[in-house]
Nucleic acid binder design. Structure first.
Lengths: 335, 335
DNA sequence: TCGGTGGTGACAACCGTTTGCCATGTGTTG
DNA sequence: CAACACATGGCAAACGGTTGTCACCACCGA
């Protein structure tokens, strides 16, 4: 077939072929109610016959809508985002949007820079764990529709996973196993989630009349597990809650190296329940976060806000519950 | 600031402000060698001062280039793709392209359909493990620049990971440990990689005067591990090579459930070395595939082909080596 | 029978940028 | 000094749609 070489068919071609104006074709295709059933049928049939494919950039130029939404992550490498990518991918596809992936390399500057540059080619963006200060976030939201995940800033729609509530459960769990010295393994300081988790931990321990310790902060990434494990051991604690599963899994590896038995010598609980947490050695007790669902919710929130005709949604901030999944990395205190 | 509300600045604004024609502004910005150093400077400074941001759709409409490349995967859920996403993400960003993510849900029809529809908004696409028949692939490559990964079809540039060579190593390893009954755990039949791996396995065993068995095929996904483990056990083999790590890890879980010791009772080797293979229980012996690098290479190949000025590259098919990473899921035969 | 009304389709003006072609001005060469 | 080449910048026509505005028509009720 030579068809690959031919000039692609445009709505003008269809208009000519059916004997109507281009505007009519445009409407028949994109706002079907605006044209009579008869002509609509005729035009759509012709479009199909001629294998017409709309030209997104042209459409975007004229209408201002690009049909594209970006998922912005701080580091594609982090398995936490895998679930989010899945969730957003599914929902965006269902809503007819294309899915752009942006990696900010953990830099707030990159984050605003890229979003600023691409804002004209996006209908909106979902910020997975933004590192931006609140003011910057609000400013950005003025440029382009935004939904944040795990980040709650007044005025910006968000979905946050209620890990703090889970943390309380985790503490409960550990205390009931007899632990008294429980330490928090801290993640990056700029991380909103990290702050929230530490805060929740303090409160929970306080309720039991226990003091809260923490080690860290450590940089994101599994590699931090080594230093974290050593620090926890050094602290004399018998149990710990790690900022996330990546840390926890890294710790497991290190502890095994050092001959420390988990959970006999030390109990560890992670956060998020990422891929792998269930088959690590030992399987990790962790706070199962509905990450994928969070991604889907974020998309829903975003596209709901995108449709100007629709009444603006009431709930601009949704919080998703978390629960404790007890596996084998936590156990009773044994001296 | 009210700036958020103002009409975005266009090159026409810059032209007016500097007293030159829009065409000159356009050239100063996108083909700097085409204007004198003096005006170029002046224009660029003004653009900066006015916080000009180019409008991608407009650019795309006029030039035909969108600055966007899609990564097409059969299922974002598969951890194998995580590495690929990383690789392509890095390299695309470096090359100044935006990164679109397309999930075909394991359907060849979806694959051509989506690519066909989006072809006008893409400069090219990278097919991670395409399920398309060769003819369809070639036809598609006529519509839009393509690079395939782990799929070699004449006429379509590709990067393939040489797992077959690794399989030979793995067989060598197992045989040297005393295994004689080695079975292949087969993945989806339509998978090119699966065929290649099975083929390689047959040859390798043959060289040792051993016959090749296989179980399966099993659908992609960790869940298949259960059935696979049972099938392998049932076959009486003492060692197995799984189509991929997902299968292998799933098997590990099942074997542990059934009280089968790995590697004392059964050795298992995986393929790909995905995230998690190193901390599974036991850590998985596997064929380490340079997935991320494959993603980067694919992007390089693609963008090289995109530049019409540049001489078309010589090597249109690159193969990346694989090596065996021995961990703890393989060991000597013990009756 | 006539004015009003609602539904349908056409006209044409954009949307913001790129690019082929041409005019001008400068420097170079014989 | 003339003729020419070349570097530079301007003009205007695309690129492929969307959409506000308006004209037309038929049908309705009074």
């Amino acid at each position: 077939m030579e068809s690959g070489r031919r000039r692609p068919v445009t709505i003008a071609d269809i208009a000519a072929a059916t004997g109507v104006a281009v505007s009519t074709v445009s409407r028949a295709l994109s706002r079907p109610s605006r044209v009579s059933a008869a002509t609509r049928e005729r035009i759509q049939a012709m479009a199909r016959a001629m294998d017409y494919v709309p030209h997104p950039p042209a459409r975007a130029l004229a209408s201002g809508r690009t049909g594209t939404v970006a998922l912005v992550v701080s580091d594609v490498t982090n398995p936490f985002y895998f679930g989010m990518i899945r969730g957003t991918q599914q929902q965006l596809k269902a809503a007819g949007y294309a899915h752009l992936l942006i990696d900010t390399e953990d830099s707030a500057d990159h984050e605003v820079e890229m979003l600023h540059t691409m804002r004209r080619s996006l209908d909106g963006a979902i910020l997975g764990a933004s590192r931006l200060p609140a003011r910057a976030l609000v400013a950005l939201a003025g440029e382009i529709p935004l939904v944040t995940v795990n980040r709650n800033v007044r005025g910006v729609p968000s979905v946050v996973i209620d890990t703090p509530a889970g943390i309380a459960q985790a503490v409960e769990h550990l205390v009931s196993l007899g632990h008294r010295d429980i330490v928090y393994v801290s993640g990056p300081t700029q991380s909103w989630s990290n702050q929230a988790r530490w805060q929740a931990m303090r409160l929970a321990l306080e309720r039991h009349g226990l003091g809260a310790q923490r080690v860290g902060p450590f940089p994101p990434g599994r590699g931090s597990g080594t230093a974290a494990a050593d620090a926890v051991l050094n602290s004399g604690a018998t149990a710990c809650v790690a900022f996330n599963d990546l840390f926890a899994i890294g710790m497991l590896t290190r502890l095994r190296e050092r001959g420390v038995r988990v959970p006999a010598d030390l109990s560890v609980v992670g956060c998020d329940d990422i891929f792998g947490a269930d088959f690590s050695n030992p399987p990790l007790t962790t706070l199962t976060a509905p990450i994928e669902q969070a991604g889907r919710m974020a998309v829903s929130l975003l596209v709901a806000g995108l449709d100007h005709r629709a009444p603006q949604p009431q709930r601009r901030a949704v919080v998703l519950p978390t629960y404790l999944t007890v596996r084998e990395s936590t156990g009773p205190l044994t001296h």
